[in-house]
Nucleic acid binder design. Structure first.
Lengths: 238, 238
DNA sequence: CAGTGGTCTAGACCACTGC
DNA sequence: CAGTGGTCTAGACCACTGA
């Protein structure tokens, strides 16, 4: 038997649904606690218990004397600098932009198969950009995912905007985490040439997979940095 | 003016203190909610609000019908495989151990100064181990911190146990996060020789700083991996 | 000023645990 | 069975916001 969910959780899920469905968009004001008491016919404590759940998920913020509001995810992009190359670079006062190198259909590489839960041999769309900092090549970025999603990302301009920020502020995704895997590899052939380094130069390879509010992988990406000039910072919490 | 803390937070802090001071050790049962109501002369809701705070920090767990218990941190070491080299390697069925290479007093390197909030020129104690997987060199590990702490870690056997697990299960630290910074550097001289790789081979360098429950850096460490054989996985949450 | 969220009280019934 | 935490009600007073 599935135990019936407690009332406060039902209300929490109902509100969560309204937010995910963009019925309550970023920045929108939630009904006041007394309004929710009336709507769901429960006591104030029950309402507050529901709101506490949403607050804990970072979905809403409460402002004393004003009300509760849906958070604007893009304004609190604290999922690590890797996931926000342009933002991080610009915040240090440097010029950052990218050049779209290619958009093509490929057979999903092994890491994408695993990250996205695909079958071997599935085809995916892959967009590649060369990211520049102060007019010097800084990194090669590759993003892989569902065709419709990648086309939407390209349309929203991958040469200026970070993927995470497009996903959250333009495409309505609600992200909760990013899975990352870092390793060090030698630069080779075309990659070395495009980054302007000698063959064999150590590169930092970071593969990142944003996870949405339902625990699903949205897409997956690979970033190749010059190891001598850039590093990847993150805070891992339990 | 510092605003007076609400009652429930005072109680939360009091209980948190008892846990941190090991007055309530891992696995210990907290007083029941009714006992806490009597002790602090507050209503049950207030008590539960305090416990909710501790629960959110992962410090206690509640068991219906039994009571609330202090969590055993070592049993939930999910702060990333980097921070648990031995544990992660052994869990894949491979032999993992280390060799203590040196323990010496040094002038704190720049990254340690920043991570630990020291002054340039301060001296710290530094222990180095060579970590082996299936009898082959896998990584060079260096840990830097306060003299007493490093000596305690060495005494608890850095050749067998992960730092995080020693800190949590033997030395009574309560860790909440780990700050990490990854980059790729070429192997050089002594380091290359000890890892058994050619000069210039890309190495993954991960610097990790465990953060305790009060937000303080406990110590800081640097790990040099062979980039072709190991990678660093982490899930970054908001 | 009225409306909002922040805090708190004094009760209640339930499901679960262990004796 | 008594003790525990899980859920919920119907109130209350406060501090803060904005008109």
């Amino acid at each position: 038997m599935t135990a019936p969910q407690p009332r406060f959780r039902q209300i929490e899920e109902e509100l969560r649904q309204r937010i995910v469905d963009n019925e309550l968009g970023p920045g929108a004001k939630l009904p006041s606690e007394s309004a929710l008491m009336a709507e769901f016919a429960v006591s104030r404590i029950t309402v507050r218990q529901s709101l506490a759940g949403l607050h804990a998920s970072g979905l809403i913020e409460k402002v004393n004397g004003k009300g509760s509001f849906v958070t604007r995810p893009a304004e609190t992009s604290n999922l690590g600098p890797i996931t926000g190359f342009y933002e991080a670079t610009r915040s240090r006062g440097r010029l950052a932009y990218g050049k779209l190198a290619s958009v093509r259909k490929i057979k999903a590489p092994a890491f994408a198969v695993q990250a996205l839960g695909l079958n071997t041999g599935d085809t995916v769309l892959c967009a590649t950009t060369l990211r520049m900092a102060d007019n010097a090549p800084a990194a090669i970025f590759m993003i892989i995912g569902d065709e419709a999603l990648i086309r939407a990302l390209v349309k929203e301009d991958l040469e200026t905007n970070d993927v995470m920020s497009i996903l959250e502020s333009r495409l309505g995704y609600r992200l909760t985490a990013v899975d990352t895997e870092s390793s060090a590899i030698p630069a080779a052939g075309d990659v070395a040439r495009r980054l302007g380094v000698a063959d064999g130069t150590p590169l930092l390879r970071v593969r990142a997979t944003p996870i949405d509010i339902r625990g699903n992988a949205v897409c997956t990406s690979e970033l190749l940095f010059r190891g001598d000039r850039y590093s990847h910072k993150a805070r891992v919490t339990r």
